[in-house]
Computed example of a mutant assay.
Amino acid sequence: MKKIISILILCLLVAPLFAQDKKKDRRHPFETRKPGIMRMYSGIWAPPPERADKFDRFNTDFFWNSWIGETNGVKTKFYAIGHAINLMFDVPFEKKGRVGMGIGLGYSHFNIRSNGSLDFVNIDNTYYTQLNPYTGPKRWINRSVFNFVEVPFELRFRAARERGKFKFYPGFKAGYMFEYYHKHRIEGAEYKEFNFPDINHLHYGPTIRIGVDNIMLFGYYDMAFLFNHDQSSKLQLFGAGISIGWF
């Protein structure tokens, strides 16, 4: 009899739990999943239900990078990979966050590995830069590096559902080139060339990100020339790859 009574009491205690599970949970999905700091950007706890949903405030881009324009037959290697890091404010225009904008601060690293050489030309004490195919001794490393600090801006369009969320982010960014060099190695000697005489520090151009959830395709086209002298090679940077949104 004691065992029967114990079982009945246990059933009475457990039954409300099953009944609660069958009811529709009306809490915010982020609250039920407890996504934490790497998702919500607001500490350990999920945001209050009345706050608009926010996404993609920290993202990283990995892309194949090259240049277009007067390349004079120079070929870029398939393993020429650049990257970017962006910290952005997500500003939704309505509760579900389906339409909004993003703006913030970013860093881009262009790393162009090629069979070319950036040559400094001096005519009448005027220096400019030409990109030409390299024809000297074998170079084990041959890459041109350009680093930027940037201000990215995006219009953001995305689906309302939480999972399988389609995203379309056309944008634009402007940046300042704070570091640049050409590096190569011949046998045991390493060379690094700085101070291009006609480098253009200010750069700007359109961006695009399109994808689902946290993985998107990424593209960037630089509208400014890499070098600004009239006789320099007319070169523009571009990159195409993937973008990962962390939270």
Rank of each mutant, 00 (worst) to 15 (best):
84 A>F: 02
85 I>Q: 10
85 I>H: 11
85 I>E: 07
87 L>R: 05
88 M>Q: 10
89 F>M: 13
89 F>S: 14
90 D>W: 01
90 D>G: 06
91 V>C: 12
92 P>V: 08
96 K>G: 12
97 G>Q: 08
97 G>K: 08
100 G>Q: 09
101 M>W: 01
101 M>K: 00
103 I>C: 02
104 G>H: 02
104 G>K: 00
105 L>D: 11
106 G>K: 04
107 Y>E: 09
108 S>V: 08
108 S>F: 09
110 F>T: 02
111 N>F: 14
112 I>V: 15
112 I>E: 04
117 S>T: 14
117 S>R: 14
118 L>C: 11
119 D>R: 13
120 F>H: 04
122 N>H: 00
123 I>Q: 14
124 D>P: 03
124 D>T: 00
125 N>M: 00
126 T>W: 09
126 T>K: 11
127 Y>N: 11
128 Y>G: 12
128 Y>M: 10
129 T>R: 02
129 T>Q: 07
130 Q>V: 14
131 L>G: 11
132 N>G: 14
132 N>L: 15
136 G>C: 12
136 G>K: 10
137 P>M: 09
138 K>T: 14
138 K>M: 12
139 R>M: 12
139 R>E: 13
139 R>D: 10
140 W>L: 11
142 N>P: 13
142 N>T: 07
143 R>I: 10
144 S>V: 09
144 S>T: 13
145 V>Y: 08
145 V>M: 10
146 F>D: 03
147 N>I: 00
147 N>C: 09
148 F>T: 06
149 V>T: 06
151 V>W: 01
152 P>I: 05
153 F>L: 07
156 R>M: 10
156 R>P: 05
157 F>M: 04
157 F>L: 08
158 R>V: 07
159 A>R: 11
160 A>G: 11
161 R>S: 13
162 E>H: 09
162 E>G: 07
163 R>N: 15
165 K>C: 13
167 K>R: 12
168 F>L: 04
168 F>T: 06
168 F>N: 07
169 Y>F: 14
170 P>S: 11
171 G>S: 08
173 K>C: 02
174 A>Y: 01
175 G>I: 02
175 G>P: 05
175 G>V: 02
176 Y>K: 03
177 M>N: 09
177 M>C: 08
177 M>R: 06
178 F>C: 04
178 F>N: 03
179 E>T: 11
180 Y>D: 14
180 Y>A: 13
181 Y>R: 13
181 Y>Q: 10
182 H>L: 06
182 H>T: 08
183 K>V: 10
183 K>R: 15
183 K>C: 12
183 K>S: 15
186 I>W: 11
186 I>V: 14
187 E>I: 09
188 G>N: 15
188 G>M: 15
190 E>N: 15
190 E>H: 15
191 Y>M: 12
191 Y>G: 15
193 E>G: 07
194 F>Y: 14
194 F>V: 04
197 P>A: 00
198 D>P: 05
199 I>A: 09
200 N>S: 05
200 N>P: 00
201 H>S: 03
203 H>M: 03
204 Y>T: 07
205 G>E: 06
205 G>H: 05
207 T>Y: 03
207 T>R: 02
208 I>P: 03
208 I>W: 00
208 I>K: 01
209 R>A: 01
210 I>F: 08
215 I>R: 01
216 M>H: 10
216 M>V: 04
217 L>K: 02
220 Y>M: 00
220 Y>A: 00
221 Y>P: 02
221 Y>K: 01
221 Y>Q: 05
223 M>I: 08
223 M>H: 12
223 M>A: 12
224 A>I: 01
226 L>C: 02
